[in-house]
Structure formats: structure tokens, C-alpha cells
């Protein structure tokens, strides 16, 4: 997880344009200036609404990540049908020699 630190909360904003820009970068999305302004205001509205949760007493309440108590679902180790590699690669944006093909990865600056 990447640490997000809020630059300045004295204006009371639920989320700042700097934070939205950072989040967009983490999510690999590129925003125009207009989008950055609009999305910041819209996301702030949602977070403002979610502030009602701050009023709840959640002391001792266990989090619920999934609705049914199934865990460690095992099956017998029996080979079954698998996806056809050629069929999968045929609908990929680019493929070569049985692999997905991508532009250079090494040497990128992140």
C-alpha cells in the first residue's frame, strides 16, 4: 500500500486535488485539469455523505468482508477442462510464440 498524506486539511475539504491526482496515478489513469477539478468535487460529495459513519459507535464490532462463512474451499486434485491457449491468445491485443506480447518493461522509470 502506498502512503497518502494529506497536504492541507485546514480548508475542511474531504479530498484535495493533490490527493485525487495521486490516486489517479496509482490507479493508472491520466486526468485532464478539468477532470481533476470535477472528480475532486464529486468524490468529496461521496466522502461527505460517508461522514455519517463517523457518528457510529463501532467499538468491538467485527468487520464483515464477505457475506457467507465459507473458508478454505478445497476440491479433489483432478484435472478438468482448461481454457484453450490459442483461443485465449487469439483475442489478446498482441501475442507471440504462445505468450502475451507487451511493450518494453525494463528500463522504465516509475
Amino acid at each position: 500500500m502506498t502512503e497518502l498524506t494529506s497536504p492541507d486539511r485546514t480548508d475542511g475539504a474531504r479530498i484535495t486535488t493533490e490527493e485525487v491526482a495521486k490516486v489517479a496515478k496509482l490507479a493508472r489513469l491520466r486526468l485532464t485539469e478539468e477532470e481533476l477539478t470535477r472528480f475532486t468535487s464529486q468524490l468529496a460529495d461521496v466522502l461527505e455523505h460517508a461522514a455519517d459513519l463517523d457518528l457510529l459507535d463501532l467499538e468491538g464490532v467485527e468487520p464483515m468482508a464477505r457475506p457467507i462463512p465459507l473458508a478454505n474451499v478445497f476440491r479433489e486434485d483432478i484435472p478438468g477442462p482448461i481454457l484453450n491457449r490459442d483461443e485465449v491468445l487469439a483475442v489478446a491485443p498482441a501475442a507471440e510464440d504462445g505468450f502475451f506480447r507487451v511493450p518494453p518493461v525494463l528500463g522504465e522509470s516509475e
Binding site: 500500500m1 497518502l4 490516486v23 457510529l56 463501532l58 464483515m64
Partner: peptide, 22 residues
């Protein structure tokens, strides 16, 4: 992405999961 970020995870995602229990 914001709700899952370090620093906000407990305040947003964690809180929401507890509300789910309620």
C-alpha cells in the same frame, strides 16, 4: 483506490466493513 490507501484504509474501508456487520 483512495479508500484502500494506507492511512485511509481503517477510516474508510475498515469502517465500512464494520457497518456491514451492523
Amino acid at each position: 483506490t483512495y479508500a484502500l490507501s494506507a492511512g485511509y484504509y481503517d477510516a474508510f474501508y475498515g469502517t465500512a466493513l464494520k457497518v456491514r456487520t451492523l
